[in-house]
């Protein structure tokens, strides 16, 4: 089996993989980073979104072998130790999750939206940017609120203080 080396959440990893191993399988099965989820097999649900070299991708659409030398970030690497990323905090504050299964992909996609679209996101932008992510629980209402709040917090650099009661 061929070997692949990449950096995952800041740590270098090297492993021999079956060539057909998808990135998501590599993360979940080889590295046991099970925060990245699989919700479909046709690249529609977005539960597997991670960042590769700073951009969001669906980790079910690339082979691990394609990512030689890449920098991969998963939900497990988003917080800074015990300090949550502002987007994580915003999802909790705004009740942007219920069963939690789509959540890692949603949060990774949301951070990417902010990286691309800035900190002042209107509802229409957020909803259309979420095109690649399915949630069956929340009806999206609170996810949209969470992303708007998380985007603002990422801009201010401060923790989100908005209360869920809002």
């Amino acid at each position: 089996m061929p070997a692949v080396s990449m950096t995952v959440n800041g740590k270098p990893v090297t492993a021999d993989v079956d060539p057909r191993t998808l990135l998501v399988q590599f993360l979940r099965e080889e590295l046991r980073l099970t925060g990245t989820h699989v919700g479909c097999d046709t690249s529609q649900c977005g539960a597997c979104v991670v960042h590769v070299n700073g951009r969001a991708i669906k980790s079910c659409t690339v082979f691990a072998l394609q990512l030689e030398g890449a920098k991969v970030a998963t939900i497990e690497g988003l917080a800074n130790g015990d300090q949550l990323h502002p987007m994580q905090e915003a999802f909790r504050d705004n009740h942007g999750l219920q069963c939690g299964f789509c959540t890692p992909g949603m949060i990774m996609a949301a951070v990417d939206i902010v990286n691309r679209k800035g900190h002042d996101l209107d509802e229409h932008t957020i909803r259309s940017e979420l095109e690649g992510n399915l949630c069956r629980c929340t009806g999206y209402h609170n996810i949209v609120k969470a992303i708007a709040a998380g985007a603002r917090a990422m801009g201010s650099g401060a923790a989100v203080t908005q209360k869920a009661a809002e």
């Binding site: 990245t36 497990e76 988003l78 999802f91 504050d93 949060i107 869920a164 009661a165």
Partner: peptide, 23 residues
């Protein structure tokens, strides 16, 4: 009372433990 959810910590950090995560 509107209380933030206790279970969220694990879900937003990728520490949820679903059946497929069991090995």
């Amino acid at each position: 009372a509107t209380v933030r959810r206790k279970e969220d910590q694990r879900f937003i950090t990728g520490k949820g433990h679903y059946t497929a995560d069991v090995n």
